[in-house]
Each structure stands twice: as structure tokens, then as C-alpha cells.
Design a protein around this nucleic acid. Sequence first.
DNA 1: CCTCTATATTGGCAAGTATCGATATATTGA
DNA 2: TCAATATATCGATACTTGCCAATATAGAGG
Lengths: 111, 111
Amino acid sequence: MSTMKSPSAIACCPPVTEAALDDETAHRLAAVFAVLGDPVRLRLFSLVASQPGGSCACDLVEPLGRSQPTVSHHLKVLFDSGLVDRERRGRWIWYSARPEALATAAELINC
Amino acid sequence: MSTMKSPSAIACCPPVTEAALDDETAHRLAAVFAVLGDPVRLRLFSLVASQPGGSCACDLVEPLGRSQPTVSHHLKVLFDSGLVDRERRGRWIWYSARPEALATAAELINC
DNA sequence: CCTCTATATTGGCAAGTATCGATATATTGA
DNA sequence: TCAATATATCGATACTTGCCAATATAGAGG
């Protein structure tokens, strides 16, 4: 462990370099990373997150180049992990990003 | 997309909410997330990263509670992804974190 | 050289997962 | 209530991956 924190260092939140993660924290963080660890799902998340008002699920199938069930599956994974929110609007279902959820991952990476 | 970047905003990299990722970028970022997406490997990385001078591989087996080949495997994954560096010192091999590699992931999350 | 020790590689298995076609559910509108 | 459409679920398959035991490799020191 560091003997002393340099006061001249940029004030930042403790990244992973600060201390080893306990088992439970590692599981919690790894779960978020695992969700973002699939290219199709990461791109899906970015598609949803880049639309301020959210996205209709129907608009997400074509740009991903995957079948509707596959996209639905990935959306479920994103929803279950808390990374996106879901709201029914009539016949359609709208997904929107929950950037707070990224804060979990940022715990580790941010600075 | 934003019409203009506020100069008063903290200078920071565009997060995922800024624009949808293209396929290649998604693959590149997802690869990093996938590496961090396993709890044992994430904890291994944090163990290495929390030691300023790096860690001897021999000190990493026991705290992880996994076999030596398994730890070696995870270290290889971390090394291949650029997240850690490797250096032989006599009979031992020292691993150290390369925080720059986290910047790739931070591209997406930070801000 | 030979032994000892540290680390890596191999081989194989079990569990997980990304994917799709087929089908079910749910909502709208006639 | 029925047809049309949007989304979810199911079942199956191929591929990936985390894990360990066994074995190989490679320095250090006699």
C-alpha cells in the first residue's frame, strides 16, 4: 500500500489501483463489465444511449444486423443489469439508458 | 449529436451517450470489458494494480483461491489485452498494471 | 548436468452464451 | 372478436470459456 497520498495529485476517485477488490465487489463490477463485454450488446447499448428520448425496440433490430429474438435477448440482459430502462408506449416498447448504472463501472475506472 | 461543445464543461472524453459506436469500435471496447468481465480475473487485476511495484505471480495464486494454471491463464489474458505488463526477474515473473489500457474503457464510461 | 522451483502450456470437461427459427403473448384497430 | 403487428419466450445448436490435473519449459544454484 502507498505510504502517503501525494496532495499534488489530481483529486480523483480511487481507481482500481488504490486497493484490491474484495470478492463481492469484484463480482458486482464484473457483472457490469460482462454485460458490456459483448460487441453486439455494447453497440446496442450505445444505440439506445445515444438517443436522448430513448429508442423503440423496433428501430434496433435492423442496425444491429441480428434477428429480432437476438436483439430482444440482449435488451433483456441490459435491462436485467440495470443499464437500460424499459417503458411500454402503446404497441411499442421504449428503451432508454440509465447512465447511473455506468457509475458502478466507473468506480473502478474513473479518475 | 450535440451542436456545440460547451467550453465551460469539464474537458472530458465523449461517453457512450454521445454517439452510437461503429462496429469496429464496439469490438475493440467490448474486448476490454470482456477481459474485466470475469470476477476472478477482475480481482486478479486489482491485486496486481494495487501494488505500485507490481506483483510476483507467485503471490497471486493463493489469494485468488484458484489453481496455478488457472491464475497463469488469467494473467495471460490480461497480458494479451494490454492490461498488465510482464517482466522476468530471475526465477520470478513480475506483473504490473498498465493503467493506460483502462483509458480505452474510460473512453466509453468516463465523464 | 542435475535438481529444484516458478511459470506456462496442453488436454479435456462442464457450464455458459450468442444465435436463430418457431411460437407465444400482448396491444391496437377494425 | 379477429387480424395485424410488436415483442418476448422456447428449443436447439454451435461456440466460447473457466477450471483443473498433468506435463512441459526455463532459470538458479549446486
